[in-house]
């Protein structure tokens, strides 16, 4: 049984300009212990998907469809019930670690609160667990850190603390929304190494949201590529990078310059801009920027299986050979 079953999830926001359709009928499963990457550019709906799972949408947001966590429906759950799930069975870490911590409370108080609240531990026992967890995420001198406040610590340190806090209750699912985007590269690689190690050692499943294909390549088991709130392609990580089946995935992979490749004239940019989510096109949302688009693309393609565990939403039978790099 899948740990998380998302079926036909849609998220929309009513704004003065009209209804913004951020997520449009998304379905996916997450198995226990698995790391699934959610990749896409800004506005592709990856963060709103995560917030909808956690019941954290903004006030003007509405989610429909079904999100089942261990066979328990999360959408429409009362906030009391949700509070019991959040932080204990599902936890989340955010892009900006410093502002996701409470500036008025010491690191220790924030960590201890999680355990006294969700696990009904006594303060002393909770403190011991918290110190242990800080050691696990490689924070030097954890006792001193427990007394410090978020502003006294660096971004990388705060992100470690967020990860420690997320793992305190040994959740089944950790949602990480761009956990290293705000960090410097050398610190980013520390945090990625830590996340990889933790997911290997524990049975926590990770939903990793990122725009960085390099991070995906290093950490994920499976990847889902999103565009305009829809899944474009989903595949095991090696398959996705080796044999992308969707023109958008191919475009993304080709448009990033790679550190291990010498210069090759011009980058294969994807022309145009992402669609306006106030009016999501009826057909394939990517067709306006796709170099293979044809008449059939006016209708929304199904999310169809193209290989073992490999799905794509595209009318093309198979991708034509890429043009030679110039």
């Amino acid at each position: 049984m899948a740990l998380l079953e998302v079926r036909d999830l849609s998220v929309s926001f009513s704004t003065p300009d009209g209804v913004v359709h951020a997520v449009n009928g998304l379905s996916f499963d997450l198995e226990p212990g698995e790391t699934l990457g959610l990749v896409g550019e800004s506005g592709s709906g990856k963060t709103q998907t995560a917030l909808a799972l956690m019941g954290l949408l903004a006030d003007n947001g509405r989610a429909s469809g079904s999100v089942k966590f261990r066979d328990q429906e999360l959408l429409g759950m009362s906030s009391r019930e949700l509070t019991r799930v959040r932080g204990s069975k599902i936890s989340m870490i955010f892009q900006d670690p410093i502002s996701s911590l409470n500036p008025y409370l010491s690191i220790g108080d924030q960590l201890i609160e999680v355990l006294t609240h969700h696990r009904s531990l006594k303060r002393k026992a909770a403190r011991e667990r918290a110190v242990e967890m800080l050691e696990r995420v490689r924070i030097g001198d954890p006792l001193a850190r427990m007394r410090q406040f978020p502003h006294e610590l660096s971004g990388g340190m705060c992100q470690r603390i967020m990860i420690a806090m997320g793992l305190l209750c040994q959740p089944d699912l950790l949602i990480a929304d761009e956990p290293t985007t705000a960090l410097d590269v050398t610190v980013q690689s520390q945090i990625n190494a830590l996340m990889g190690e933790l997911s290997e050692k524990s049975s926590t499943a990770i939903l990793l949201i990122t725009h960085d294909l390099g991070v995906v390549a290093g950490l994920c088991d499976r990847v889902m590529v999103m565009y305009a709130g829809q899944e474009m392609e989903m595949a095991p990580v090696v398959t996705l990078f080796a044999e992308p089946a969707h023109p958008y995935t191919e475009g993304l992979l080709n448009s990033v310059p790679r550190l291990d490749r010498a210069r090759s004239g011009i980058l294969n940019a994807i022309p145009g801009n992402p669609p306006n989510l106030l009016q999501v096109p009826a057909g394939c949302p990517f067709s306006a920027r796709c170099r293979h688009a044809w008449e059939a693309c006016r209708e929304r393609p199904a999310f169809a299986e193209v290989g073992p565990d490999h799905y794509k939403r595209c009318h093309l039978e198979r991708l034509p050979e890429a043009p030679p790099e110039t």
Binding site: S189, L213, V215
Partner: peptide
Amino acid sequence: ESVPIPDPVLERERARRVLDGDI
């Protein structure tokens, strides 16, 4: 060595030394 490479096979076999500490 810190920069991840968008290639799962290469990326996982890469030898790298992660720097300790912060700037």
